Amino acid sequence: MERVTITIDADLLAFVDTLSATKSYGSRSEAIRDILRKAARTERQADPDAPCFATLAYVYDHETRDLARRLTNQQHDHHDLSIATLHVHLDRHECLEVAVLRGTSGAVQSFADGVISQRGVRHGQLHLLPGAPDAAHGHEHGHEHGPGHAHSHAHDD
């Protein structure tokens, strides 16, 4: 690890100290390293060809005319990005869906924008994580894949 000296104004230093206390960082250095890691991740994700994993969470009114069909069609049109989807009935009218996605950040962002912008979708949030979508996951897991079907498993290697 390299040691560097930086000059920082009082307001930014107060922010680093508040962040350190709020997030329980052991030091200012760890807080600054985390800020820089997030900035680097954001910069990498700005490349539309960068591989990523993502979660897309959105709340929608299932009674909005034709919305369920439009959302289903959009998911089928982009089946290559989908790993899994969780569907939860929040109340009589609203549903929450969480989609786990894998692909290039540009394709995933485009899909998310298409879902979130649908009339009747009330809230939506995309969370991108760096990933390697074409990497083999290197183990057997007890079932066969049909033509054109692939999925991923997260591992702490």
Score class of each variant (00 low, 15 high):
Arg92Leu: 11
Arg92Lys: 09
Arg92Tyr: 08
Arg92Phe: 09
Arg92Thr: 06
His93Val: 05
His93Tyr: 10
His93Ala: 13
His93Asp: 11
His93Gln: 11
His93Ser: 12
His93Trp: 06
His93Met: 06
Glu94Ile: 01
Glu94Phe: 10
Glu94Ala: 09
Glu94Arg: 13
Glu94Cys: 06
Glu94Tyr: 10
Cys95Lys: 02
Cys95Thr: 02
Leu96Asp: 09
Leu96Gln: 07
Leu96Glu: 09
Leu96Arg: 05
Leu96Ala: 10
Leu96Gly: 05
Glu97Cys: 04
Glu97Tyr: 03
Glu97His: 02
Glu97Asp: 11
Glu97Met: 02
Glu97Val: 00
Val98Asn: 06
Val98His: 04
Ala99Leu: 13
Ala99His: 12
Ala99Asn: 11
Ala99Met: 13
Val100Asn: 07
Val100Ala: 14
Val100Ile: 12
Val100Gln: 10
Leu101Ser: 07
Leu101Ile: 03
Arg102Lys: 14
Arg102Leu: 13
Arg102Glu: 15
Arg102Gln: 15
Arg102Thr: 09
Gly103Arg: 04
Gly103Met: 08
Gly103Trp: 01
Gly103His: 02
Gly103Gln: 08
Thr104Ala: 07
Thr104Met: 07
Thr104Asn: 05
Thr104Glu: 11
Thr104Phe: 05
Thr104Tyr: 03
Ser105Asp: 10
Ser105Glu: 10
Gly106Phe: 05
Gly106Cys: 10
Gly106His: 08
Gly106Thr: 07
Gly106Trp: 08
Ala107Asn: 14
Ala107His: 13
Ala107Asp: 15
Val108Gln: 15
Val108Arg: 15
Val108Ser: 15
Val108Trp: 08
Val108Lys: 15
Val108Pro: 05
Gln109Asp: 13
Gln109Lys: 12
Gln109Thr: 14
Gln109Ser: 13
Ser110Leu: 11
Ser110Gln: 14
Ser110Val: 03
Ser110Phe: 03
Ser110Trp: 02
Ser110Pro: 09
Ser110Lys: 09
Phe111Tyr: 15
Phe111Pro: 07
Phe111Cys: 05
Phe111Met: 11
Phe111Arg: 00
Phe111Lys: 02
Ala112His: 03
Ala112Ser: 15
Ala112Asn: 07
Ala112Met: 06
Ala112Gly: 08
Asp113Pro: 03
Asp113Gln: 12
Asp113Asn: 12
Gly114Lys: 03
Gly114Trp: 03
Gly114Phe: 00
Gly114Ile: 04
Gly114Ser: 11
Gly114Thr: 08
Val115Thr: 10
Val115Phe: 01
Val115Tyr: 02
Ile116Glu: 08
Ile116Val: 12
Ile116Lys: 01
Ile116His: 02
Ser117Gln: 06
Ser117Val: 00
Ser117Cys: 00
Ser117Trp: 00
Gln118Ala: 11
Gln118His: 06
Gln118Phe: 00
Arg119Asn: 08
Arg119Tyr: 02
Arg119Lys: 09
Arg119Phe: 01
Gly120Cys: 03
Gly120Trp: 01
Gly120Ser: 04
Gly120Leu: 02
Gly120Arg: 00
Gly120Asn: 01
Val121Gly: 09
Val121Asp: 05
Val121Glu: 03
Val121Met: 04
Val121Ala: 07
Val121Tyr: 05
Val121His: 06
Arg122Thr: 08
Arg122Val: 06
Arg122Gln: 12
Arg122Leu: 13
His123Met: 06
His123Phe: 08
His123Asp: 13
His123Cys: 01
Gly124Asp: 05
Gly124Val: 00
Gly124Arg: 00
Gln125Arg: 14
Gln125Tyr: 05
Gln125Ala: 14
Gln125Asn: 13
Gln125Lys: 15
Gln125His: 15
